[in-house]
């Protein structure tokens, strides 16, 4: 265990733990767009910048992305110093110029006092901030269906060759965790379309409710050793089935006693 000071409060941390993890544990609000506990940090969005210093640094301080900076003993962290807030608002200013239509970016920028960008707005831009949260989650889950393609201005998230990815099972984790809700999918009539690939959903045999795609259910049953029959019914019908079974047993018990 080591001790670091965050905003004047001495807190305990594990050696080598990332600063952002400690900051979040202390319930201090530091904005992030690219961070997710399920995946390795990448420092793409730059919004988790904090000011760090040490007594022996003679008043010198450094500005680092807290998601990638390991905690060290005696570190003094300031999450909302004047200069840190200035840095964050200038980063958000650039985000706002690049993605002026994104409601999530606009809201976050407004929280830091940036209502209008001082740069030239990109008119025909999209809402993808290229944080890579979707590709990292896809890789961690073991599908590797999408990745970053191209460089510089042409960089984008796409499946291989911009064709329907064979590795995608339609789990929707990329779309649901996108910080700007950029990844589009279409779910209707028991089907799902994402990354130009069409999926069929597993419909509950009792009520017809859909939860996951057939491909995902088959993947889980094959790779994770789960009985494929578990996926036939929806959660609600499963609960009713369990209540029915437990009810029958309780009724035997009741009849035996009376």
């Amino acid at each position: 265990m080591i001790h670091i000071t965050i905003n004047g409060k001495v807190v305990q941390a594990k050696d080598g733990e990332m600063l952002l993890t400690v900051i979040r544990r202390e319930k201090i609000d530091v904005p992030t767009l690219c961070h997710h506990e399920a995946v390795e940090p990448s420092g793409a969005c730059r919004l988790c910048m904090v000011e760090i210093t040490k007594p022996e640094w003679d008043g010198w301080c450094d500005y680092v992305t807290s998601c990638l900076y390991p905690a060290a003993d005696g570190l003094i962290v300031n999450t909302h110093a004047k200069k840190v807030n200035e840095l964050r608002s200038s980063i958000l200013d650039m985000y706002l110029a690049r993605h002026p239509k994104s409601p999530e970016i606009r809201q976050l920028a407004a929280e830091y006092g940036v209502l209008k960008t001082q740069f030239e707005e990109v008119v025909d831009g999209d809402n993808c901030i290229l944080c890579g949260i979707c590709t990292r989650i896809c890789d961690t889950m073991g599908f590797h269906a999408i990745s970053m393609v191209g460089r510089g201005h042409g960089k984008e998230v796409a499946p291989p060759l911009n064709m329907a990815p064979t590795a995608c099972v339609g789990c929707l984790s990329c779309a649901k965790n996108c910080p700007t809700n950029y990844i589009e999918y279409n779910m209707e009539n028991g089907g799902l379309t994402i990354w130009k690939k069409d999926f069929e959903m597993v419909a509950c045999t009792e009520c017809g409710k859909t939860t996951i795609t057939k491909e995902f259910a088959e993947y889980l049953s094959k790779n994770r050793d789960i009985n494929i029959d578990y996926f036939r019914k929806c959660d609600e019908c499963h609960r009713k089935e369990l209540a029915g079974t437990m009810g029958r047993i309780s009724n035997w018990d009741r009849e035996a006693r009376s």
Binding site: I137, M141, L172, N177, T211, I212, F231, D235, H238
Partner: peptide, 19 residues
Amino acid sequence: EVCVNCMACVAACPFGCAV
């Protein structure tokens, strides 16, 4: 914090107790 909302557990639970 770690959950990615993929719904795998909701579909896999044979008793429907992950919701």
